[in-house]
């Protein structure tokens, strides 16, 4: 033997899953919703997505280079943040806004807190809320069929108008680029679950709690609940944003609690809040509570149950 042997502590084998291919799977899962958004809203939507992805990736690259840190763009997390941010934008938004959002998401929310794994809020959602508060007008101006400004079905529904649930399911409605087509989102969600990237715990707890909440405190009508599920960003949020590893609990029970909290908050905001939508705020508020949720949901070690 000419070479020296490698010596390290066991285990000596590793699973083939890497952080990078997890991120890639998340990106792949968003392709149906992205494709539908571009098909529905046209070139404008494609540009918004492009700008927000480039903004996130460049922000990460520039910040890490300037700080003399290893550049981690290749892990794919900035790409995913960029996609989620872009999919959360109205298609007709001026392009400098997704750019600003990307810078805020990556530099303020993620890198200033220590980079990947250290941010306590979902960067894309925090950036969306930042833009929503700063530029309420353009962030809530939704268009459909080329520049016809119209309210989202959820807003119309809240105002007491009737809406077409089938159209909402397919996505023939105004809204943000990625949230409109429930069917496209569910295809992506099924992919994530089949690939074991996410577990069903958070989305299931979220959607069930939310459904019960609106059934009890809204109208005792299943069609009413269904309209709420197909409207706004709840499906997108439940499967793609609430399940963000970094900002959701690692404990099994904690994930259930987290989902229940999300369901209650979203229900509160939607039924009793000023605006028709509440998913983004529900998620970032719950994000902040994750350390507490983990604290109360620590599992009992094997053989120490009941002690």
């Amino acid at each position: 033997m000419s070479k020296l042997l490698n010596v390290s502590s066991s285990p000596h084998v590793r699973d083939h899953v890497t952080s990078q291919n997890i991120m890639l799977d998340v990106a792949i899962a968003m392709i149906p919703a992205t494709a539908y958004g571009v098909y529905q809203f046209g070139v404008k939507a494609a540009l918004v997505l492009l700008v927000s992805i480039l903004s996130c990736v460049l922000s990460e690259y520039v910040f890490e280079t300037l700080m003399g840190k290893p550049v981690t763009v290749s892990d794919g997390s900035a790409l995913v943040t960029g996609m989620i941010l872009g999919l959360n934008m109205p298609p007709a938004i001026p392009l400098w806004m997704p750019f600003l959002g990307g810078v805020f998401a990556i530099i303020v929310v993620k890198q200033l807190y220590g980079g990947l794994g250290q941010n306590f809020m979902n960067p894309a959602l925090a950036a969306r809320c930042f833009l929503l508060i700063s530029f309420a007008g353009p962030m809530t101006t939704f268009t459909y069929n080329d520049a016809v400004v119209s309210p989202t079905p959820l807003a119309a529904f809240k105002a007491g108008q009737s809406v077409d649930v089938a159209a909402m399911f397919i996505g023939k409605i105004p809204g943000t680029i990625g949230e409109v087509s429930i069917i496209a989102l569910l295809i992506g969600a099924a992919y994530l679950i089949a690939r074991k990237v996410i577990s069903i715990r958070i989305p299931a707890a979220y959607l069930i709690t939310f459904s019960l909440f609106v059934f009890v405190f809204g109208q005792h009508d299943l069609m009413y609940v269904l309209t709420h599920l197909c409207g706004g960003g709840i499906i997108f949020g439940a499967f793609f944003m609430a399940t963000d590893y970094v900002t959701s609990p690692v404990t099994t029970k904690g994930q259930i609690y987290f989902g229940i909290l999300l369901g209650v908050l979203t229900g509160l905001f939607r039924l009793f809040g000023g605006s028709a939508e509440g998913v983004s705020y529900a998620i970032i508020i719950s994000n902040i509570l994750v350390p507490l949720i983990e604290k109360i949901s620590l599992p009992k070690a094997f053989g120490k149950e009941g002690k």
Binding site: T18, S19, I22, T72, S77, L116, G117, Y245, V250
Partner: peptide, 9 residues
Amino acid sequence: PTACIRCGR
């Protein structure tokens, strides 16, 4: 090794 992403695996 890279940063922990808190995936819970």
